[in-house]
Computed example of a mutant assay.
Amino acid sequence: MNFQRNDLIGFLKGALNVDVSDVEDDTLLFSTGVIDSFSMIELITYIESTTGPSIPPGDITLENFDSIGRILSYVNSRAA
């Protein structure tokens, strides 16, 4: 499955109540406090339920999950 930007933005806006009006693909989400650790857990759970395979704990890093661009890159590289 190809995980889309619109899917992720919709989840951030709808489920996590994030104001996405200023969120770009390179906006740091966790490092800047846009989302917190509880939201990160919800985000990981959403991604796993949407894309299929579980995400190994060692892959849950800021390098992979701190921006929309990083998340999309990570998730879609796993699907390839």
Rank of each mutant, 00 (worst) to 15 (best):
S54Q: 14
T51P: 00
V34E: 09
G14Y: 10
F11G: 12
P53A: 12
G14I: 05
T45I: 12
I44G: 00
L8M: 08
T45P: 11
D7Q: 15
P53I: 01
L28W: 01
T50W: 00
I71V: 15
P56K: 03
D25W: 09
P56I: 08
D25G: 03
I35Q: 05
V75W: 00
G58N: 11
I60A: 06
S39K: 11
D36C: 06
Q4E: 13
D19M: 08
G58L: 02
I47R: 01
R70P: 10
I55H: 00
L12H: 00
Q4L: 12
S31V: 09
S21E: 07
A79M: 15
L62G: 15
D19Y: 11
L29A: 10
Y46C: 04
N6R: 11
S21D: 13
K13G: 07
N76I: 03
M1W: 06
K13A: 14
I47H: 00
L29K: 01
D59Q: 12
E63W: 02
R70N: 12
R78S: 13
N6W: 02
T45K: 02
I55C: 07
N2I: 09
S39I: 09
S54P: 15
A80V: 13
I44E: 02
L8Y: 09
L72G: 15
R78M: 06
D66K: 04
T32I: 04
P53H: 03
S37R: 03
T61C: 10
S21T: 15
F3G: 01
N76T: 06
F38R: 05
S39Y: 15
L62D: 07
T32H: 06
D22M: 04
G69E: 07
S77C: 03
D36M: 07
S67G: 08
D26M: 11
G69Y: 04
D22F: 10
E63M: 03
L12W: 05
L62Q: 04
L12T: 08
G33Q: 01
E24M: 14
I9E: 13
M1S: 10
V75K: 00
G33V: 05
R78Q: 08
F11M: 06
E48I: 08
S31E: 15
M1Y: 10
T61E: 09
A15G: 09
I35F: 07
S21A: 05
Q4V: 12
S67P: 00
D66F: 00
I60M: 07
F30D: 05
M1R: 13
I47S: 03
G10K: 01
L8D: 11
